[in-house]
Design a protein around this nucleic acid. Structure first.
Length: 701
DNA sequence: CTTAGGG
DNA sequence: CCCTAAG
């Protein structure tokens, strides 16, 4: 029946411009932390990495607020470079992909800062593929400083301790300060570790990219690493804050387009046209177990620990980051998760979104160790710098004061590769919507932010910025953020964990796939004839799918110059003291709230029509009837909308807000509401006659 | 999973 | 929209 050809597009990823910091009101929304029970919660791959700049609040309250939403890598580079030049303080140098076959491999942007005559640079950025719940990055210093310190921690072994996300804290600071213990782990030390690890791991995962070993390894739980709160930072606190940017080859959407792989095939044939396709298929198969999986996920992985909700202090930190996710909430309770799952299912409807390994691979590749890009840190004096250059004394004082804030500027997030499947007959519009959907789903299906400090992941959510050193510039040579999937994709039935680990990197298997967009298609199941409105509703629904995302979100138009300023308030030490470091809270995740999507008049009309026919109390049916294709409208949403409609209809027009709903509709709402209220209240009587379940249209209309 | 309601 | 208790 469905013989139309479908196109598969693979996006290697694209840049998502950073978002401006959300308003307090938005952030006020409580954040919950979810604990991931199953350590194996290996999300697939890391979705994005972000380079951020951190500023000490002091004096730089008016940090630049433009986000650079680079569209293409080159653009990014230029941008960055340009910016750098402007800012002066940092030297920025994109790492060229010099490796022969590394055409696709990414390049690493490195900003190094010069501190005490040493250059720091983001040397590599690696992501774990297996337990890819986390990405891993390591920082290498320009080795003027031999890596001789040794850390007692062995980062390797913990492959299975997924929960223990790898985290390395490379703190030059530490070295310089000669801190004892693991704190020393950093710089060369870590790198060595990594390199070694890589060597070891490589064969196992067999991930070789462009001849460069790009594998992942796992480190012990960062927590394990004695990341002691930075002692009051001293001296160099006035050092410039370097900006480290990391981008992989496909960091930008535009760029990815070049890379878009379009494979046209018959859905029922050539099941293995290419790796990608086969991959797609496998995913499709995996969908079969969707339900079961969801349940599993819900019960197994999402048994959130509401108890952690009160870890308050961190909430603050995270709340500030939250905006990045477009106000999406992450499931944190069992039920919630179910719902999320449900939604996800719906959202994906016939489409699954997959986040391919590419993301990770790409990232990893991008930072091939061999590549060396160390730009000399040069100029200083940018505004930001100046800010951070505040006298030590002031720094200290700021540290002491509980009001000190840390300001971060996230240049952009990178969303990993996406795969979508869409009929050839689909319109460009639907393609756009589909992509949007995919993006939305990916972004909304649960992402959490990872924080990288000096290329190392900071896993301890209970740590304050102060403790972590994020509030000290001297410790902030680089602060990075990563977007990580919170979803747990159960390993393919046929594959065991090992299998996964053995998956070749090259196979950019899509984790999610986007099926064709139904709308606009001729052969789509039409709505029942007796529901004209529903039809319109349906058709419109889809259009709603293309939720108007914030401009900066749309890949089509990104604002290159804008920069988001995300600030993370530093927490007072005292506050921290109160917060116990529960081991659990480590693996917590943020929950994002769904994006708000106001009902349009046409949607309202469809809703009204459906309710008139079905009555209240049958939201499921209403949904199916009028919003079947509106994946983002759940029956609960419809119910809620009806509730508000009734309310709206009762209040004076002046009190109404939002897109005005035609009075006519409101009248119908009241009418229907009254009718069904009565109908529902007196069920006893002649149920049959009067209101037969199926559909008893409102009498007088 | 659905409903129904409170938040 | 979210969150939940109930069914």
């Amino acid at each position: 029946m469905v013989l139309q050809k479908r196109l598969y597009y693979g996006f290697n990823g694209f840049e998502v411009p950073a978002m401006p910091r959300a308003s307090r009101s938005v952030r006020r929304r409580r954040l919950f932390e979810k604990k991931v029970e199953d350590s194996r919660m290996r999300a697939f791959d890391l979705l994005a990495t972000v380079a951020g700049e951190l500023l000490e609040e002091k004096g730089s309250s008016a940090a630049p607020s433009n986000v650079s939403g680079q569209i293409s890598e080159s653009a990014i580079r230029k941008d960055s470079i340009k910016q750098e030049q402007q800012d002066g303080p940092h030297s920025f140098k994109p790492e060229p992909c010099d490796q022969g076959s590394c055409d696709e491999s990414a390049s690493v942007f490195v900003l190094s800062s010069q501190r005490h005559g040493h250059d720091f640079s983001f040397k590599e950025y690696l992501h774990s593929k297996e337990d890819s719940t986390f990405g891993l990055a390591s920082v290498k210093t320009k080795s003027e400083r031999p890596a001789n310190t040794t850390c007692a921690h062995d980062f390797g072994e913990s492959r299975k301790e997924c929960e223990n996300f790898p985290c390395m804290i490379c703190g030059k600071h530490h070295v310089e300060r000669g801190s004892p213990g693991c704190a020393e782990s950093h710089d060369g030390k870590v790198n060595d570790e990594i390199d070694r690890q890589m060597e070891v791991e490589q064969p196992r995962t067999g991930s070789v990219i462009d001849g460069t070993v790009v594998d992942m390894f796992h480190l012990k739980d960062p927590m394990e690493i004695d990341t002691k709160p930075p002692a009051l930072v001293s001296s160099d606190s006035s050092v410039e804050v370097p900006l480290h940017g990391i981008h992989d080859h496909c960091s930008s959407f535009t760029r990815c387009q070049d890379d878009v792989k379009v494979v046209s095939r018959d859905d029922d044939e050539n099941s293995s046209v290419s790796t990608r396709l086969s991959t797609l298929k496998s995913y499709r198969l995996s969908r079969l177990g969707d339900r079961r999986i969801r349940k599993l996920l819900a019960s197994k992985h999402w048994k959130a620990a509401p108890a952690m909700l009160k870890d308050g202090v961190f909430s603050n930190t995270e709340s500030d980051i939250k905006p990045i996710f477009r106000s999406r909430k992450i499931c944190y309770t069992h039920q919630r998760s179910q719902r999320c799952s449900f939604k996800r299912r719906k959202l994906f409807g016939r489409s699954l979104i997959s986040i391919s390994d590419r993301g990770i691979n790409g990232e990893a590749v991008s930072s091939s160790p061999e590549k060396k890009v160390i730009s000399e840190a040069t100029c200083l004096g940018g505004t930001m710098h100046q800010a951070s250059r505040a006298p030590v004394t002031s720094q200290k004082s700021s540290l002491e004061s509980r009001d000190s804030h840390v300001k971060l500027r996230i240049k952009s997030f990178r969303v990993p590769e996406l795969f979508i499947e869409i009929p050839e007959t689909a319109t460009v519009g639907s393609l756009k919507r589909t992509v949007m959907e995919a993006v939305t789903a990916v972004l909304g299906s649960g992402l959490r932010v990872g924080v990288l400090l000096h290329g190392k992941k900071v896993r301890d959510d209970n740590r304050t910025l102060l403790q972590t050193g994020i509030s000290h510039d001297d410790k902030l040579d680089s602060l990075g953020f990563t977007l990580e999937p919170t979803t747990v994709h159960p390993p393919p039935p046929q594959c065991s964990e090992d299998c996964q680990s053995l998956l070749p990197c090259d196979s950019t298997e899509p984790l999610t796939r986007y099926p064709p967009v139904p709308a606009l298609e001729p052969g789509l199941p039409e709505t029942s004839p007796d529901l004209p409105l529903a039809d319109s509703g349906n058709s419109t629904e889809d259009s709603y799918e293309s939720v108007p995302f914030p401009p900066d979100m749309s890949m089509e138009k990104t604002t290159p110059d804008s920069k988001a300023l995300v600030s993370v308030p530093a927490m007072s030490v005292e506050a921290l003291a109160v917060v116990p470091l529960h081991g659990k809270s480590r693996r917590s995740e943020l929950v994002q709230r769904r994006i708000r999507r106001p009902f349009s008049v046409s949607e309202v009309e469809a809703l009204v029509q459906a309710v008139e026919k079905l009555g209240t109390g049958r939201w499921r049916d209403v949904k199916l009837r009028a919003f079947e294709n509106a994946k983002h409208r759940t029956y609960v949403d419809l119910k809620d909308k009806w509730k508000t409609l009734v309310h709206t209809a009762r209040i004076s027009p002046q009190q109404r807000r939002g897109e005005p709903v035609p009075q006519e509709l409101l009248d119908r709402v009241l009418s229907a509401h009254a009718y069904w209220s009565q109908q529902n209240s007196k069920p006893g009587g002649r149920t049959n006659n009067n209101s037969n379940r199926p559909d008893s249209p409102l009498p007088a209309q």
